[in-house]
Design a protein around this nucleic acid. Sequence first.
DNA 1: TTTAATTTTCAATAATTTTTGAAAGTTTAG
DNA 2: CTAAACTTTCAAAAATTATTGAAAATTAAA
Lengths: 168, 168
Amino acid sequence: MELEAAKLKYIQTWGSLATSWGINKTMAQVHALLLVSIEPLSAEDIMDTLKISRGNVNMNVRALIDWGIVRKEFVVGERKEFFVADKDIWELFKQVTKERKKREIEPVIKVLEELQNDVKEESEEAEQFKKLMQDLSSVTSTVNSILDKAIKADEHWLLSSFTKMIKK
Amino acid sequence: MELEAAKLKYIQTWGSLATSWGINKTMAQVHALLLVSIEPLSAEDIMDTLKISRGNVNMNVRALIDWGIVRKEFVVGERKEFFVADKDIWELFKQVTKERKKREIEPVIKVLEELQNDVKEESEEAEQFKKLMQDLSSVTSTVNSILDKAIKADEHWLLSSFTKMIKK
DNA sequence: TTTAATTTTCAATAATTTTTGAAAGTTTAG
DNA sequence: CTAAACTTTCAAAAATTATTGAAAATTAAA
């Protein structure tokens, strides 16, 4: 397979994985494109390769910068902005995990804990509900703390430490 | 807070978490409703509580059954079908993880490996691309194998505090 | 300054996903 | 068997989400 064809296939594949995990397809594709590019790319380069509008590129590049996985880079003699994605994939995984944890998982844990505390009733049914909230927040917190460790750890922590946990 | 209000709030919260992880909101809400219900619920019960159509209930309940996290149950003297969600949350986590792994992560690993092998070119650029595919598939595989272990692990390894609710 | 290049914004539009509801299909009681 | 109860299907409508493109804002060169 040609290198360029392979790059495009990777961009497509990554885009569709993103879609099923609730991440904007274009955003994933822009990121994938920057990853496989040797040179920094301008907004126009991205528009041309992915066949998308200027506005779309701008919005998604900014989102990627917000997420901390893409950065601007200046090219000597060029006025316009260029973008690069760092190619350390483990770092990328950590960044994305960190953001999603903070934005999505942590608020849910908070609500589950509140619900547990706010129900004052003491019927059998209420106790069951509180128990369910507790179990849910337990599992959610455990997942959260595994992710926490992953974020802080060195490259191969995740696998080995997890194995230890299982074996106890 | 009233128990019923708390249940509804939980259903909402869970629905919005689902949305940001690429899972249909109604599907998550139906599941949440079944989780907080003491009795098995009929399609009509679900329609009434969530204010959604019969067709919608049918589709989403079937999807939940497909995912292996909801099952039909018969109620004596009743002709229609009733549904229940098992309340073992760890089991739920395992089931969902298993499905997503199989449907979404594994096919991506396969593509990444193919891309690595299919590019025959040996330029510096091609080598960098292959290296990237390798890194991506190694991170993806690591995540995948962690999930694998979680799925296979004994029910209680994660949380010693886990107590069972109604075990059928 | 002024002007041209470039980036950002956002209302309008397009694409996608979800939901509805009524008709068709199935099952069971009598 | 037939009829009523119930479930499933799926085309059309609604809701949601993503994208465009042109105008406004910003930046930097002249």
